[in-house]
């Protein structure tokens, strides 16, 4: 203890100097913004380095939880993307006109509705197209679908409240009635499941003069409104075993980029179908058969 006092006494001037320096520097770093910022900056620099080293180690152990959180965040953000939402048409409402003809006496047989393609394939054997309108908008089975450029696309085969499924012409089970524009002869079109650019048309008699480039239209026998393009004859093949041609049709609709389409309802479809069935029943009935 004595030595301590001796030391202090011996170096009293120097200690005093140091004390006054410290006081001056304390004032300097306390009351001056620049010096304070500078001092704190230096301290930050020092502690920041150590802290960042520590943090890198610390972060490593939290990587898993961090990843998980990031993934959840991504998930919630991806859910917000506009492409997640299908625009359901809630504005247009189907109201059946109570008087189905206008004042000039024209009866309406075909009712058109617009729709948008939300799903479409061409590469499968059974290609379907999905549209953004369903039973809520008055869509029912057997309605026909025509592309925006007026070429036949397919027939509605199934509906849900907001969507409808269309059997494309490019479907191996699709079989539609069409007419050759030049002669008016009816035939049927099918698809062989190979080339989405070409359909096969049958039942045109060899007596007909069919040339490459002839137009094929929809017929009244199908649900399509008559007179819309189905395709053009690309190749005329004579089927040796029968009396009919086999025509290769180039489709009028470009099935690769369908976007806007029309759904056409035949307002007398029920009546026509009932008449057909009744007739069949009537004819097939053994009672009538003998007459």
């Amino acid at each position: 203890m004595r030595n301590v006092f001796l030391f202090i006494r011996r170096y009293f001037t120097f200690i005093c100097f140091l004390a006054l320096q410290v006081a001056a520097l304390y004032l300097l770093f306390t009351y001056n913004r620049f010096h304070r910022a500078k001092g704190l900056g230096f301290a930050n620099e020092l502690t920041g380095r150590i802290n960042s080293r520590y943090k890198t180690v610390d972060d490593f152990f939290h990587l898993k939880a961090e990843n998980q959180r990031l993934h959840q965040l991504n998930d919630s953000l991806l859910n917000l993307l506009p492409s997640n939402f299908e625009k359901i048409d809630t504005i247009t409402r189907f109201v059946r006109d109570s008087i189905p003809y206008d004042t000039l006496g024209h009866y309406r047989q075909y009712l058109w509705r617009d729709a948008r393609v939300v799903y479409n394939t061409v590469t499968a054997e059974k290609n379907y197209i999905q549209l953004n309108k369903g039973s809520n908008h008055g869509i029912r089975d057997n309605m026909s679908v025509i592309n925006s450029d007026g070429s036949a696309v397919g027939v509605v085969v199934n509906v849900s409240p907001n969507f409808s499924q269309v059997m494309s012409l490019l479907h191996v089970q699709s079989k539609r009635s069409v007419v050759l524009k030049k002669s008016g002869n009816m035939g049927t079109i099918e698809w062989d499941g190979k080339d989405p650019l070409y359909l096969t048309m049958r039942n045109i008699p060899k007596s007909d003069s069919v040339l490459k480039g002839d137009t094929v239209l929809t017929s009244v026998n199908s649900n399509f409104p008559p007179g819309f393009m189905v395709g053009t004859v690309a190749e005329v093949l004579a089927d040796k075993s029968t009396n009919f041609y086999v025509l290769k049709l180039k489709t009028a609709a470009n099935f690769f980029n369908l976007q806007q389409v029309h759904i056409i309802e035949n307002l007398y479809d029920d009546e026509q179908a009932r008449l057909r069935d009744d007739t069949k029943k009537k004819i097939d009935d053994p009672k009538n058969y003998n007459r």
């Binding site: 006054l20 001056a24 004032l27 300097l28 306390t30 010096h35």
Partner: peptide, 23 residues
């Protein structure tokens, strides 16, 4: 030392930079 410190501090008070001249 004390006189020096006080002198510096006085000037500091005038020059709005407390501590520089004192030190």
């Amino acid at each position: 030392l004390i006189i020096g410190f006080v002198t510096g501090l006085t000037l500091d008070a005038f020059s709005m930079q407390i501590g520089v001249h004192a030190a």
